[in-house]
């Protein structure tokens, strides 16, 4: 019943991924199936391009990162950006597509609410112009900034203790910075004793500390 197919085509310096069909969920399932079957075969393989008639840029980027982190493909950001631009069809799509998501340098901008069950993963920093709802997961190698209410789970600064997680309202389920984890207190937060300032979570003396953000600090 599944019409989606994924195929790899090898070249001297890497592999191309060819995707048929447009159901993103099925594509991911097929991809997992394929890669689990040939376990380890593609480790360290360089991803050169993703060809698909139906996938959006965002979906391609998600697949690229999935290949990188889950299946150990090699891929760098520059390549990825180039890859997306070289695809002429995609270039047209950039113009047509609602500009809610775009990549610039190493920061990913998301211009919508991230909802339960949705995962946003990015190499660099992530800026979300919207809310992060409970059950959503944000994973950045560097910082996470949320111009809204952060109620989900966030993980920042994989190897960098100086990374921060900041939000206009910071009410996370769980926060992780580098190797430190903090969770929301079990008592329900009474809104009365909270400042209305934005808040920043960072590591101070080996612990995650949340402080109100003061511009002169």
């Amino acid at each position: 019943m599944i019409e989606e197919r994924v195929n790899f085509r090898g070249e001297n310096d890497g592999v191309h991924l060819i995707v048929e069909g447009g159901n993103f969920r099925n594509i991911l399932i097929e991809l997992d199936k394929k890669l689990k079957k040939g376990k380890g075969f593609y480790d360290g393989a360089k991803l050169l391009s993703i060809y698909s008639e139906e996938l959006s840029i965002l979906e391609k980027i998600e697949i690229a990162y999935r290949l990188k982190y889950k299946f150990k493909f090699v891929l760098d950001d520059e390549e990825l950006t180039k890859m997306m631009q070289e695809d002429k069809k995609e270039e047209k799509k950039i113009v047509e597509m609602p500009q809610d998501i775009y990549t610039r340098c190493d920061t990913l901008f998301i211009h919508r609410t991230v909802r339960s069950g949705q995962v946003i993963t990015h190499e660099g920093s992530i800026v979300i112009i919207g809310d992060v709802n409970p059950g959503a997961i944000i994973e950045a190698k560097l910082n996470i900034i949320v111009l809204g209410n952060f109620r989900g789970s966030g993980s920042a600064g994989e190897n960098d203790e100086n990374s921060i997680i900041a939000a206009y309202r910071l009410n996370p389920t769980q926060l992780k910075i580098a190797d430190k984890i903090a969770r929301a207190p079990d008592e329900k937060d009474t809104d009365h004793n909270r400042s209305s300032l934005p808040e920043i979570a960072r590591i101070i003396n080996g612990k995650i500390v949340i402080e109100p953000y003061l511009p002169n600090k």
Partner: peptide
């Protein structure tokens, strides 16, 4: 509400 949020995300996608 949590499940509704999940479903809204799926509807949007």
């Amino acid at each position: 509400v949590r499940d509704a949020d999940r479903v809204i995300g799926l509807l949007e996608s």
